[in-house]
Simulated assay, not measured.
Amino acid sequence: MRRGRGTVNRVLLGLTGVVLFGAGGLALLGGFGLAAKWQLPAGWPWSRPDQVLLPARQRTRWTDQGWWWPVVIATLAVFVLLMLWWLLTQLRRHRLHAILVDSGDGEGAQLRGRALEAALTAESEAMNGVDGAGVLLTGRRSEPQVRAVLALAPHADPGTVVRRLSDEAVAHARRSAGLDRLPAEARLRAVKHRPERVS
Rank of each mutant, 00 (worst) to 15 (best):
2 R>Y: 02
3 R>W: 05
4 G>T: 09
7 T>Q: 10
7 T>Y: 07
8 V>K: 01
9 N>L: 14
9 N>E: 10
10 R>T: 07
10 R>K: 04
10 R>G: 03
24 G>T: 08
28 L>P: 01
33 G>E: 08
33 G>R: 09
33 G>M: 11
36 A>M: 03
37 K>S: 13
38 W>Y: 08
41 P>E: 02
43 G>K: 08
48 R>Q: 08
52 V>H: 02
55 P>K: 00
59 R>E: 04
62 W>T: 09
63 T>M: 13
68 W>Y: 13
69 W>K: 08
73 I>E: 14
73 I>G: 07
74 A>L: 15
74 A>Q: 12
79 F>Y: 13
79 F>H: 14
81 L>E: 09
82 L>C: 07
82 L>P: 02
84 L>I: 07
84 L>C: 04
86 W>A: 09
87 L>S: 11
88 L>S: 07
97 H>W: 13
99 I>Y: 03
99 I>P: 00
102 D>W: 09
103 S>V: 13
110 Q>W: 11
112 R>A: 13
113 G>L: 06
115 A>I: 05
115 A>S: 10
115 A>H: 05
116 L>K: 02
123 E>V: 03
125 E>S: 09
126 A>V: 04
130 V>K: 00
131 D>C: 04
134 G>A: 13
136 L>N: 06
140 R>M: 12
145 Q>F: 08
153 A>C: 06
154 P>M: 03
159 G>L: 08
165 L>H: 14
167 D>E: 15
170 V>M: 01
171 A>D: 14
173 A>G: 01
174 R>W: 02
178 G>Y: 08
179 L>R: 10
179 L>S: 05
180 D>H: 15
181 R>V: 11
181 R>G: 12
187 R>Y: 11
190 A>S: 10
190 A>E: 15
191 V>Y: 10
192 K>P: 11
193 H>S: 15
199 S>L: 15
